[in-house]
Nucleic acid binder design. Sequence first.
DNA 1: AAGAAGTTTGGACCGTCGGTCCAATTCCAA
DNA 2: TTGGAATTGGACCGACGGTCCAAACTTCTT
Lengths: 224, 224
Amino acid sequence: MVDMTVPAPRNTRRSDALSRDRIVEATVAVLDATGEAGLTVRALTAHLSTGRGAIYHHVANKEELLAAAADDIVGRVTAGAGDDEDPERAIRALALGIFDAIDAHPWVGTQLSREPWQPAVLRIWKSVGSQLQRLGVPGPARADAGAALVNYVLGAAAQYAAGARRVTSDADRKAYLETLAAQWAQHDPDPIVQDAASQLHEHDDREQFLAGVDIFLTGITTRR
Amino acid sequence: MVDMTVPAPRNTRRSDALSRDRIVEATVAVLDATGEAGLTVRALTAHLSTGRGAIYHHVANKEELLAAAADDIVGRVTAGAGDDEDPERAIRALALGIFDAIDAHPWVGTQLSREPWQPAVLRIWKSVGSQLQRLGVPGPARADAGAALVNYVLGAAAQYAAGARRVTSDADRKAYLETLAAQWAQHDPDPIVQDAASQLHEHDDREQFLAGVDIFLTGITTRR
DNA sequence: AAGAAGTTTGGACCGTCGGTCCAATTCCAA
DNA sequence: TTGGAATTGGACCGACGGTCCAAACTTCTT
């Protein structure tokens, strides 16, 4: 049977106009609230109380949304990261800023390692490159050094983000690491694994990440 | 109308028995042929000429399949990587082995950075850890050094894998880099970007990757 | 003032995916 | 021989990303 009721008027234009910025803002909110798996275009329409066509009118696809959301977060980090006089300290500050941003928004970590030429990654490249320049690393070596540092940061970002995704509270984290260590120790008699498992509980991701940055900086300044 | 034809006999047990190993083998084949996006359980059933229930009888889910496939590839690399007498050379050989494996199977690069405690990543940890031990890096520093190296390798793997995914032939690659450089140069007047764009065409990923390994090795041995 | 042209909106619709379920069949042990 | 266990294949489900389009609103033109 055909529906004969007169449809209620649709499409009254919203008072709060939909825009690309508002959509990206909502994307960040949904990602923070429900994680990467929770970001569906349907969830976005619910959060913005609109339809899907309206979103695809402002944005090409979901990939663009993720890239824009990550760029939004990374942009805030890199904005205030070049302030320090000492380029080495500036690099450390930049790296820590990214680490903390990923700690707060784990989805950024996975997004950054998905696509090398996305705007958020270019921001990091530029920031690192300018600090290395100030550090006096000569041209050809600078490209290698920049790639090494960026790759390290992105690799660590992805790894730590996966951890942060899995546990929320600190109590969870401790229990998680303990069961993990037990699984390793039981499954693999290799002394290296045993050693690592025993040290796992007194392990601070943030310090270890920074130690890696320092190793890199030592390598750069030594080879110069 | 109900189908009244007698169904042809189903489920005659296959002569080539389905097993977890055979499924993983087929997974690698499908991934190499069609990339990560092409790996669907349906494509697997077609490649194995079976049904989906049969696959899920041997394997929990798609994630497990990806992890097993990556472990298969990485296992072959780490198997022959500890041979060199000199631990520094052994580390370089291991890193290059992983790089070449990802060049041949780009999907491995993205998979490695997705989940830190998957078997393939543990293999890399163990291999790096044992070489650092032979190198004489003391206990606490060894964990930091290992994390730095592994994170660098995984980060570079993901980045280069994304590039290898996008271009297949060397001709493609050259054209790709040129349009990319042009886009940058046009979009961003920053001298650092301009500089990077101008050097992009004479850029060798493999050499740059190895240069990064050397930077970290220098940092590690210097701080020892 | 009024209509034409363009923009924005919401939801119906499509094809595909991962995963579940189950009847049919085969294998194996007693 | 026979009954339980293992294995198989495909129907089915809910959810997803993306397309399409008519309705509604804005802005421009005359």
